[in-house]
């Protein structure tokens, strides 16, 4: 019970249960992801050649934006009802607890994007050979987006401002994920080996996993002061 990971499972289970009580909210990022992807064919042209060319960037851009969408909720309701303060005072390691919260958030908002991505990829005429790279890239990239976003959310939780500020904070930091993710899919479409960008995404994920929980915890403490 008193190991370094104590409290992780409890917070994870609690956040997941809360999320499943509100299926509507949970579906929002997913719907957003599908909608953004649907906007591009409408705005560009239904030409398969063109859509296939822009698909990697469109899918990754849409994933980036929809992962931003749900972030505002990550800490706000807990901040409002005081349970965030209880987490800080609980005596458990705060970085571990915020990591659990972020993981729960990713399972609800990031993982569905990974699962639905092949469907959208096929709608954009992305060849099936690239679907695996797309899913693997999203699987490695979206947790980093959730971690970066959690830091931004923790910094802005105490503020009344909406998510515009949050986007301004998080998007510039997330550009490498977008570049490597889209590049990997691009390579796979061209029939080349996409392993390089995927390795880089994995490296960034591990860097983020090891450092960002500390920053998120510090940001939560600042917000609660």
């Amino acid at each position: 019970m008193n190991g370094p990971l104590s409290g992780f499972g409890v917070v994870l289970a609690r956040d997941l249960r809360l999320a499943f009580r509100r299926p509507g909210e949970m579906a929002n990022p997913l719907l957003f992801f599908i909608l953004i992807t649907a906007i591009f064919p409408l705005g560009l042209s239904p030409e398969p050649e063109l859509l296939r060319t822009v698909a990697p960037g469109v899918l990754w851009g849409a994933a980036l934006l929809s992962s931003l969408l749900a972030l505002d909720l990550l800490f706000r309701s807990d901040y409002g009802d005081g349970s965030l303060e209880q987490l800080v005072l609980s005596g458990h390691s705060l970085p571990v607890l915020v990591l659990a919260k972020t993981l729960a958030h990713w399972m609800v908002s990031g993982l569905p994007l990974v699962l639905v991505a092949p469907l959208l990829a096929s709608a954009l005429y992305l060849p099936p050979e690239a679907w695996g790279t797309l899913m693997l890239g999203l699987l490695l990239g979206t947790p980093t987006l959730s971690l970066l976003g959690a830091m931004g959310a923790a910094l802005t939780t105490g503020l009344g401002t909406g998510s515009a500020l949050l986007s301004l904070l998080v998007l510039p930091l997330a550009t490498p994920i977008l570049i490597f993710g889209a590049r990997g899919v691009d390579l796979a479409v061209q029939g080349m080996d996409p392993v390089g960008p995927l390795y880089l995404l994995a490296a960034i994920l591990f860097l983020a996993l090891s450092l960002l929980p500390l920053a998120i915890a510090a940001a939560v403490r600042i917000s609660l002061d």
């Binding site: 510039p172 450092l211 920053a215 600042i222």
Partner: peptide, 27 residues
């Protein structure tokens, strides 16, 4: 509060700047 919140962002940002730079160069 502004000092500490923005300071944290600056520190996270500076770790990220080389990654951003090299990803952009590579892209």
């Amino acid at each position: 509060k502004a000092d500490r919140a923005s300071g944290l962002l600056a520190v996270v940002g500076v770790v990220n700047v080389p990654i951003i730079h090299y990803s952009v160069v590579w892209w």
